[in-house]
């Protein structure tokens, strides 16, 4: 599903070139839930944006679903993102002038009746129905992240990339987000979460550790072979939508 091969990303700094990613290589199989852990500044977000086709690496290659992302033109890469990738960001990144429903719809490359039905189902499933007509500025942090999650899930992408998705959430909402991502993975999707904490680990099949732009450790997580449905509490958020 994801092949990251010898990826190097350097940025221009005051004292010359600064390495954001330093020879990063790993693979993610279809249907995996992978967590990449690392402290702030370790290059997690840089890695995620590189995998998302938004940050061209200085060298190395990124291939998703057999497609070398940076061999594509800018517009073809944008199309690929629109159709194949879902994003969840720490800062939610909702469109401030669109209501909840429109924000979720904004993630869809095409909107048909089935897509609308899916969106409504997600809005209900994530407990957002009473706020469907509200603007993001009126929502709590947890609600905003649920909107962002619904937006990523709505187009049913093969791969979801989540950057510190629970960084601004209380434990309860953090659990809801991870549960939902795990449910999505159980349904055949692939999830890559980057986080500075260890809260994603219980939900992940595999954990990669990143430090100073390098993958330093890779380990199978404890739940890698455990059926997720067995350890998830029953909440409105992990019901099938």
């Amino acid at each position: 599903m994801v092949h990251c091969t010898q990826v190097v990303k350097r940025f221009a700094g005051r004292g010359g070139q600064v390495a954001g990613l330093d020879d990063v290589s790993f693979e993610i199989a279809r249907g995996e839930f992978v967590a990449i852990q690392g402290p702030s500044g370790s290059g997690k977000s840089t890695l995620l944006l590189t995998l998302g086709g938004m940050l061209r690496p200085t060298s190395g290659s990124v291939s998703i679903l057999g497609q070398d992302l940076y061999a594509l033109s800018g517009s073809a890469r944008a199309r690929f993102r629109a159709e194949r990738l879902g994003f969840v960001f720490q800062l939610f990144h909702l469109v401030p002038y669109l209501d909840v429903r429109s924000n979720v719809l904004a993630g869809l490359p095409t909107i048909d009746a089935a897509a609308r039905e899916r969106v409504e189902s997600l809005i209900h499933g994530l407990g957002l129905a009473p706020r469907a007509r509200e603007l993001p500025s009126t929502l709590s942090a947890g609600e905003r992240q649920r909107v962002a999650l619904a937006r990523a899930l709505a187009k049913q992408p093969p791969l979801i990339l989540a950057d510190e998705p629970t960084g601004n959430l209380d434990p309860e909402n953090a659990a809801l987000v991870f549960n939902r991502l795990a449910e999505y993975q159980r349904g055949g999707g692939t999830v890559l979460v980057v986080t500075h904490g260890s809260d994603a680990a219980p939900h992940a099949n595999r954990v990669l550790r990143l430090a100073a732009g390098r993958v330093t450790d890779s380990a199978a997580a404890s739940r890698s072979s455990i059926p997720l449905s067995a350890d998830l509490p029953s909440t409105p958020l992990n019901r099938s939508s």
Binding site: G52, M54, G74, S75, A78, R79, F80, R81, A82, E83, L85, F87, F89, L91, H93, L94, V95, P96, A106, G107, P109
Partner: peptide, 14 residues
């Protein structure tokens, strides 16, 4: 700028 970044992430072209 954040919104423009988001539209990019969602696959909107130039």
């Amino acid at each position: 700028r954040p919104e423009i970044g988001l539209w990019r992430a969602l696959g909107q072209g130039s």
